[in-house]
Structures are given as C-alpha cells and as structure tokens.
Design a protein around this nucleic acid. Structure first.
Ligand SMILES: [Mg+2]
Ligand SMILES: [Mg+2]
Length: 381
DNA sequence: TCTGGGGTCCTAGGACCC
DNA sequence: TCTGGGGTCCTAGGACCC
C-alpha cells in the first residue's frame, strides 16, 4: 500500500514500539527471546527503563529501582542501555513510516504520529507488517480522526496490535477508561479529579466545561473537557527547533559540597560539547540541585553573550552554586547536579557550515538536534 | 531498594516600558 | 491623586511526556 494522493479520508495514527529497548536487545541476542529482559541503570541508584513482557509478568515495570527488579525477578537478564543502537533501529522504523505516511511527527525514540489517507485501518496493517518484517520489532498502532483518540487507541493496541476508534464511537469507547489515560492527565491531575468524583473519562464527559475550568483553570479545563469527548488536534505539528539542552547526573552516592565544583566542571564540559555539536548557543544557564531529601531547586541566570564555551558555562555555574548555596541553610550534600542552557539560537559564527551535517537542509528546524533520537524511552516519576 | 535523564509547556510575580 | 492596563523579560516551580 502506497501513499495516497486523492481527496480521501485523512487519519492520524500513533505508532509505538513495544518494550523498545528490551526488544532491540532480544533482536541482537536471539538467545534472550522468551526471557525476562530488563534494561536500565546498573548503579546503586539505577532504575528500569524498559523491560520485556516476561519481566512484567514478574511484577517488574518502568521506573522501578533496579534493585527492586532484581528482587522480584532474580532470573532476569539485566542490561545497561545502548542509546546509539536504539537510535539506529529507531531510524530504520521511522524510515518505514515515511514510506507510508503523508507526514510524520516523531514524539520520542520509539513513537511517532503519522498522518495517512485512504483506508486507515488497512494502512495501519500495512505499516505494522512492514515494520515487523523489515526490523523484527513489535509495533502497536492506534488510529482515529485526531491525536487524542489515536494516542488512547495505541495504549489499547499494546502489545503488537491495532486499535481503531471511529469518531462516532469515541465517547463510548473512552467512557470506561481511567481519566489518567487522557494525554496530559498525569498522577497529580488524576488524583485531584478522582477526589472530586471524576475517576473515569465517562465521569468527565458528564461534567460541565465550567466545572472542569473551575477545578483546573480556564485553559486546562477547556482542554480536558474536549479531550474527554474524544476531540483533539487533527493535524500534525511542524518540527520545531529545540529550545534547551541539558545534562544532569544523579551520583551513586551523595557528594559533599566540596566536590560540587569538580562535578560542575564535568557537566559544563559535556554541555559545551553538545552545544557545539548542535551548533547552537544559549542565552540562560540553569543550575539544578537535588538534595538527599529529594528536595530539588533550580537557579537560573541570563548571560549577555551566547553560551557555548565550557569556561563560560562553568564559571556561571559555579557562581550560581556559590551565591545560592554556600550561605544557605541547605544540607551540605547533594544527590544530583544538572545544567541546562535555554533559549537556543543557531550559532551563526565561524566554522564549517552545512558540510558537517550533510543530512540537514537550511530550513530544517531539527538541524543538528534530531530530538526524536535524543530522548530515551521514559516512564513516570 | 527509595525515586534516571532529556525534554516541553504553563503559571505567577516583579521589573521595566509605554 | 492613592490608582489602569498591556507587553515583554526575568526567575522559580511544577506538571507532564517518553
Ligand atoms: Mg513504546
Ligand atoms: Mg512510547
């Protein structure tokens, strides 16, 4: 099935690879097939990034500490993430998407919205078969008239299925699902809604728009009210250039203040390299500190000049730390340090031009950033 | 056994300008 | 004459996404 050209029905698909990191590890080491495979941090503070369905059967899930996962699943195969390898497979899959779709909007390393026309469910089937045949990966596809129903459908399609939500049945299909399945409703909002008597999407459908606005604010309430009814964006977003670049590290053991400068030095170096690699400069620098209590704060400062240089970043970072921490009554150890540069602008300065990034066109807002590759597979906090 | 890393968007108050 | 309103920049925090 090829891309359509005529004036036919348009559909939105949400294509999401199942247990992506673990699935890639199984592909590369076939003897792992059928075993509980757990990909995540190996250190004392590591957490599970993704695990195979065999591991899920043992109670393991994303965001769980690796130590807990070992306890639940001692026979599991524990592996550190290999981001480069996952990016490669992701690119293979997205290339297939591009053959079928009129347009694609990558959302993460393992997920993208597709716009297709013609027979939507048939198109989904063709895409899924091509991905399975050509990459060996399992893909779930949700489809419908807009992003909201496609996203929810994809959750219902997992693993490896296709779920279609016809718009005339959208409200009915959504009604029994928990409110937290709506995109944009996370743990906090879900708890608030539940407390107010809105446990399911159906409960929200019965609420007035004004009521939801009173609970969540004018904009968020309006948006939630629409989503509950199965309404959402019917078009994909054009790519947007990245707005920030950050690095952070949770230390295996809390470090004393005396060690902070040398850690900031390392983070500054990493951040500078990323900025230079992407050929962007930033305008503000933010320092993030998490204390042993998990209390977290950020301190930010604007810079008159474009931030890209390691020394520039390091001296600002150290100053932010000293100004706000040295005299503060905070505990004198830290669990995490992070640096983020905001308000990126393309570095128009000296240096090789596009030859360094032959894939990029001048108008490509992804220039040097390729955000769909830069994010890992995630999980809630 | 406490809780990763890389992002986006929204809110809100004060400064500053008109 | 006791108090306007909009716009933008800046900073801090929080919710959410994968
Ligand atoms: Mg996935
Ligand atoms: Mg996903």
């Amino acid at each position: 099935m090829e891309k359509g050209t005529g004036f036919m029905d348009r559909w939105i698909l949400l294509c999401d690879l199942d247990a992506f990191f673990a699935a890639v590890e199984v592909l590369d080491q076939p003897h792992l097939k059928g075993k509980p495979v757990i990909v995540g941090g190996m250190g004392p503070r590591g957490v599970v990034a993704t695990c195979s369905y065999e591991a899920r059967a043992a109670g393991v899930h994303s965001a769980m500490s690796t130590a807990k996962a070992r306890e639940l699943c001692p026979q599991g195969v524990f592996l550190p993430p290999r981001p480069q390898r996952y990016r490669e497979k992701s690119q293979e899959v997205f290339a297939i998407f591009r053959r079928f779709a009129l347009m694609i909007e990558p959302r993460s390393i393992d997920e993208a919205y597709l716009e297709v026309d013609g027979d939507g469910p048939e198109m989904a089937k063709a895409i899924q078969e091509a991905v399975v045949r050509e990459t060996g990966l399992s893909l779930a596809i949700g489809g419908g008239a807009n992003k909201v129903v496609a996203k929810i459908a994809s959750q219902l399609a997992k693993p490896g299925g296709i779920f279609w939500i016809p718009q005339e049945k959208a409200a009915e299909i959504l009604a029994p699902l928990p409110a937290g399945m709506l995109p944009g409703v996370g743990p906090k909002t879900e708890a608030l809604l539940r407390k107010e008597g809105y446990a399911t999407i159906g409960d929200l459908q019965k609420a007035s728009r004004e009521r939801l606005q009173a609970l969540l604010g004018e904009r968020a309430g309006q948006s939630l009210w629409e989503k509950a009814a199965g309404q959402g964006p019917e078009f994909l977003d054009a790519p947007v250039p990245p707005k920030s670049v950050s690095v952070e590290e949770t230390f295996p053991f809390d470090i004393p203040y005396s060690q902070v400068p040398s850690e900031l030095r390392k983070l500054s170096r990493q951040l500078a390299k990323r900025l230079q690699g992407r050929r962007v400069k930033g305008h503000t620098l933010a320092l993030k500190i998490r204390f042993p209590s998990f209390q977290t704060l950020t301190r930010q400062t604007a810079s008159p000049q474009g931030l890209q240089d390691e020394e520039e970043i390091f001296s600002l970072a150290r100053r932010l730390f000293e100004i706000h921490m040295v005299r503060g009554q905070y505990p004198r150890r830290v669990r995490l340090l992070g640096l983020r540069v905001n308000q990126l602008k393309k570095d128009e300065g000296k240096g090789r031009q596009l030859t360094f990034f032959p894939l990029l066109r001048p108008d490509d807002p992804f220039a040097g950033a390729l955000p769909e590759e830069s994010r890992g597979e995630g999980f809630p906090p």
